[in-house]
Design a protein around this nucleic acid. Structure first.
Length: 471
DNA sequence: TAGCATTTGTG
DNA sequence: ACAAATGCT
């Protein structure tokens, strides 16, 4: 009586555009939707855990409405799946693919082991517009540079349309003894702003996309780099857990493009950012070692500084560079950081403090709501210049100029650094110059710090280091 | 193969 | 204007 199918949720916490779930629903079998807390997965941080708990709760409710119950487990997926197929007499397991090294290896082992025992394992693409193995350059290998990669993607057939949400699932009335209840993931007190502007879950994701199209898309190309402007999509945490898919975003944007009057430029620019996400997954799939190793091996000789004190000051937003500190404090309090500021804070850690990008990557991973196994790694390597498009001094951001350029009113900076609320704009990004004036900045013990490193000195030191590792 | 591209800063 | 290296066609 093999008439049930196990649906394994991972990073696809939605019902719509979910090919594996649709496949399960259409099989006619009873569906057992499960989520497994895998102890071998890279541990996620507090904010991300909170998000996942919220999202899983919503998912469970949505599944209930269409007739199925979401079950939770903790342990090695292979063992759990093996036991569950036995318990439920399931002859099939379905899931949507992941692309990082650990997941690929794990899923492959599961597929092999269980297929040998007569369990059919089917996987689907639910989180990318283009499968990484389908995009190749003229010499037949994977792209290492974004622009030609995305150009090639755009030359491919348009991505598939989103799959419809299943309207009814045949549930299963039995329960098994392995189940656990969904662990709660509370937030600490200093993360007070995290819950303010987010609604995790599929409904929240779709609302966020609507909101972005209404309020952000038109000004996206012009203002996406201004952290005080509501011009970015803020879809990253939803994309992280698959509460919305790139296909859904793509299709919605195509619809809007043909029905409303957005400029070609702003739409192209936004879709290219979805493209950067695709590119990150493409890279991590083809070069899984990049999670811990420099893409460019010459970087293995880079003279990184070991400086725990500076690393800590960076983490706490106490470097003395207002825009860097504002970004790091935004991250600490909200679990989010604006994209432009991510590049600036990352650049500061790597170039100004000469601290290994992996230390920064880990901290972002631990703190970000949207910490993504592909984007976080690729983003840090991009800033480090340890990838194929290395261009070191193209990417030593001047934190003072960046502030003046992208936070010209100082609203973003002052929001997260109240100590600087009364500094006049011309000194906001170099407040040490205002010291002699009576501008009301407290530089005393516990007040706003002096720069922990001088910009010009740091820039030259970094350039020398890059010179050292040149072949 | 030579030209193009490449989320910038400095003088 | 110039600071460089690499991938790509």
């Amino acid at each position: 009586m093999s008439n049930s199918v196990i649906y394994w949720f991972r990073q696809d916490l939605r019902l719509e555009d979910n090919p594996a779930l649709l496949h399960a629903a259409q099989s006619g079998k009873s569906v057992i939707p499960i989520f497994i807390f895998d102890p071998d997965d890279r541990p996620i941080g507090m904010a991300a855990s909170w998000w996942r708990e919220q999202s899983l709760t919503k998912l469970g409710q949505a599944l209930k409405k269409i007739g199925a119950t979401l079950n939770f487990y903790e342990g090695r997926p292979l063992e759990i799946l093996q036991k569950l197929t036995g318990f439920y007499g399931a002859d099939e397991i379905v899931w949507n693919r992941q692309y990082d090294g650990y997941s690929v290896a794990r899923d492959k082992e599961i597929k092999q082991t269980l297929s040998d025992k007569g369990i059919q394992c089917s996987s689907f693409n639910a989180s990318l517009l283009f499968e990484p193995w389908l995009i190749k350059n003229k010499s037949g290998s994977h792209f290492k540079v974004f622009s030609p990669f995305w150009r090639q993607c755009m030359a491919e057939n348009a991505p598939e349309s989103p799959f419809p949400r299943p309207t009814k699932l045949r549930g299963h009335s039995d329960t098994d003894p392995l189940q656990i209840s969904l662990p709660t993931a509370p937030l600490s007190d200093d993360a007070d702003l995290i819950t303010e502007e987010w609604t995790p879950g599929e409904t929240g994701a779709n609302r966020q996309l609507e909101k972005f199209i209404e309020e952000g898309l038109a000004i996206y190309a012009e203002f996406r780099d201004f952290p005080d402007r509501p011009a970015t999509s803020r879809l990253s945490p939803y994309l992280r857990w698959g509460e919305i898919s790139p296909r859904q975003i793509w299709s919605k944007i195509q619809f809007v493009k043909s029905h409303e009057s957005f400029s070609e430029k702003t739409i192209t620019k936004f879709l290219a950012e979805i493209g950067w996400r695709e590119f990150s997954y493409h890279l991590i799939f083809h070069v899984p070692e990049m999670a811990t190793q420099n893409l460019q091996s010459s970087f293995n000789d880079f003279p990184w500084e070991r400086n725990e004190e500076a690393l800590q000051q960076w983490k706490e937003g106490k470097t003395g560079y207002p825009l860097v500190d504002a970004g790091m404090r935004e991250l600490r309090r909200t679990g989010y950081m604006h994209n432009r500021v991510r590049m600036i804070t990352a650049s500061f850690l790597i170039k100004h403090l000469m601290i290994d990008w992996r230390a920064g990557e880990k901290y972002f991973w631990d703190r970000l709501l949207d910490a993504c196994p592909a984007n976080n790694i690729a983003g840090w390597q991009w800033v480090a210049g340890s990838g194929a498009d290395a261009a070191p001094f193209f990417r030593i951001f001047n934190p003072i100029i960046q502030g003046e350029k992208f936070d010209p009113q100082g609203a973003y900076t002052k929001r997260f650094i109240p100590e600087l609320a009364h500094v006049e704009q011309k000194h906001l990004f170099s407040p040490w110059k205002a010291k002699s004036d009576t501008v009301g900045v407290d530089f005393q013990e516990g007040g706003y710090p002096d720069p922990i490193v001088e910009h010009e000195y740091a820039r030259n030191r970094a350039l020398d280091a890059f010179q050292q590792i040149r072949r």
